[in-house]
Simulated scan of single mutants.
Amino acid sequence: MRRVVGFAAVVVLAGCTSQEAGGSAPSAAAPAGLKVEVVASGLSHPWDVGFLPDGRMLVPQRPGRIALVDDGAVTDVEADLGDVAARGEGGLMSLVVHPDFDTSKRFTTCFNTDSDVRLVTWVLDGTRATRVKDPLLAGLPSSSGGRHSGCRMALDDEGRLLVGTGDTARGEVPQDLGSLGGKVLRIDLETGEGAPGNPFGDRIYTYGHRNIQGVAVREDGLVLTAEHGPSTDDEVNVLQPGGNYGWDPSRGGTTGGYDESVPMTDLERFPDAVPAAWSSGQPTEAICDAAFLRGARWGDLDGVLAVTALKGEKVLLFTITQEGGVHSVAIPPELEGTHGRLRGAEAGPDGALYVTTSNGEDDEVLRITNG
């Protein structure tokens, strides 16, 4: 893993500590000269980008459609998505292309139905997708209005599937180890069962989360998540197996509602909870997906964590220490208020960063490079 020495040096010289821009970490001088290109358009709330080995992209859209993007041309994938319940924040969400796609042609999606959030594995044949694991995993909680029904997937360095879930705006869910909501799950990509070595002997890897929107895995295996806060404190967290991340809007079961005035990470109630690596303070940005910038083409930005923001309509660039701390935060002007709400983030096989907009009409996939 390369350390971002050059970028960190700029931060030290700048000496900026703006709380508004940097949250709980110092702000860095914005990198100059990022190039932003539109590689696909005409989409509706694209949630994710999954790269096929030949460079084509599968792009799931929240209303219940999958686009196949080939050199700018967008084709609808023929797939039975009739049970997708697109309401509120929920619908067709994350997508992961299997590492053996060359031979298996498989990918997995996560979406809301009328009763739950579930993972389904598909086989792609041309522009047609057929379900082959239906479901790979079912029973993730969902809310009738779709609130906090998020689902973000990523493969860890062992090929296990990490799944970040929302708490469905129910106060007891995040701390309940009998529920799959408000958690990060770690499961076998082929069977949907809990992966070996999980801390509780089942599918749960971490708990006490509010609404995870992004999961990013560094080359050395470090996992960071991006998570929505209530009226304060969006968080970037470093995952620790078995960790409690301290969200408890039930106040230990003493309130029957959903008390969002509690701290995002309640260290008074849970002294052993894992503190956030970074928190936004106020205002929140509604941070979303996350991806590491990788490769020499990024120069001093190699190894930086890029995080999209919905409400903030920007990309935040986090300089991450070897141990997983946040050294500083920068906001490139090319991606601040220029394309509206930004949701998906994925490093492409060409080394570029791919970001999706989430404005609802004529949404785009953006390709971002360092000059």
Rank of each mutant, 00 (worst) to 15 (best):
P230V: 09
V236H: 04
N237K: 01
E235K: 15
V238M: 15
A226C: 02
G243R: 08
G253R: 01
P241K: 13
T255L: 00
Y258T: 06
P241I: 07
E260I: 15
Q240R: 15
G257T: 07
W247T: 01
R251D: 08
T225I: 15
S231V: 15
Y258H: 03
E260P: 12
E260M: 14
P249W: 01
A226M: 00
E227H: 03
N237R: 00
T255Y: 04
R251N: 08
N237L: 07
E235P: 09
A226N: 01
D234C: 04
G229I: 10
P241S: 02
T225E: 08
V236K: 02
L239Y: 06
G257D: 08
D233E: 11
N244L: 01
W247C: 02
G257C: 03
P230D: 10
G257M: 06
P230R: 07
R251A: 10
N237M: 05
P241D: 03
T225P: 07
Y258P: 11
G256W: 06
T254D: 13
T255F: 02
G243A: 05
R251E: 13
N244H: 05
T255M: 01
N244K: 09
D259F: 10
P249Y: 00
G229C: 05
G229R: 11
V238E: 13
E260Q: 15
E235R: 15
R251W: 11
V238C: 11
W247L: 06
H228Q: 06
V238H: 12
G256F: 08
D233Y: 12
D233F: 04
A226L: 01
Q240K: 14
L239H: 13
S261V: 12
G229V: 10
V236T: 08
H228I: 10
W247N: 02
G253V: 07
P249Q: 01
D248E: 07
N244G: 02
D234S: 05
G242T: 09
A226Q: 00
P249C: 08
H228E: 05
Q240T: 15
G242N: 10
G253T: 04
D233Q: 09
